[in-house]
Write a protein that binds this DNA or RNA. Sequence first.
DNA 1: CCCATTGAGTTCGAATTTGAACACCGGGTA
DNA 2: TACCCGGTGTTCAAATTCGAACTCAATGGG
Lengths: 160, 160
Amino acid sequence: MGRPRWLNAQEKRAWNAFFGTYELLNRRLDQQLKQDSGISHLQYVILARLSGAPDRELRMTELACAVSTPKSGLSYQIGQLERAGLVRRRACESDPRAVYAVLTEAGTALLERAAPGHVALVRELLIDVLTPGQLDALADGLGEANRRMLADGDASADCG
Amino acid sequence: MGRPRWLNAQEKRAWNAFFGTYELLNRRLDQQLKQDSGISHLQYVILARLSGAPDRELRMTELACAVSTPKSGLSYQIGQLERAGLVRRRACESDPRAVYAVLTEAGTALLERAAPGHVALVRELLIDVLTPGQLDALADGLGEANRRMLADGDASADCG
DNA sequence: CCCATTGAGTTCGAATTTGAACACCGGGTA
DNA sequence: TACCCGGTGTTCAAATTCGAACTCAATGGG
């Protein structure tokens, strides 16, 4: 535990690139989605997750974990999506405590309209900029970092 | 411009890992910094940038660009940091429109106290999880994506 | 049976974020 | 000089975010 091991130049470059890219990219995606489809990026991610789930529905906690967001924030966003008619809440028969978020027809339709432009921008700004090797490195390296953070549960208020 | 080119499995893995890692990591860093030093992660980044600048000061617009945040948000945060005595605003003699944010002694001191723990967590959760090759890929690939987004100025409200 | 404990989801209040609108000032141009 | 423009930074209102506190049930000792 001696003196702190500061980041060297390369590590700093990686760190800054990681954060800068996220900030800029997220804002750009947000702007495009709001402009084109009237939803935020987070809302898009929520709809997309639901769309990929069996019966297009997920429990609140699972969904919160899937989108890496605190429960309270998800609750708020599901409220917004519900007001917009894109998602419906459904109580679980077997467990009275559980609530499912269900993608509606309107939600599915909006997602299908929004997806092409969104994916195109994701490609343009990130995916197609990277070499195949860099893509692997992101998937593997960041995937591992992600897993570890999820694993040591204590520290993550959300997820189960 | 035909049908949309959806992301393949590997691309999806990279994309999800990228976003998930950022979300979890940012929250963890925020918690630690608030706990240990009473500042947010964004505030830490601001102080750190100032600390690395000549005379420990930067113009508002430069700083906004450096931390990839909109001008209005930076203005607010500098206000907070000023109230806390960690940063001071200084008018520019030559250009009356310009404002410099200057790191104070107290700001420098707090940064020095906060840095070791912060860097240690950054290492633990991200840097030390990655192989050297993966680090290079992040620095190069994301660095390039970052540069491109900054370059096509129109779309980024901040930065100049 | 009773009550503490745990887990799911919501609600709450305070802080933050955001783009748009605004105020300010110098530089060019008639 | 008078006037409009472009760039800088702040202010504004609305939406969002976050953790903590809360509600409601089921669980499990004692």
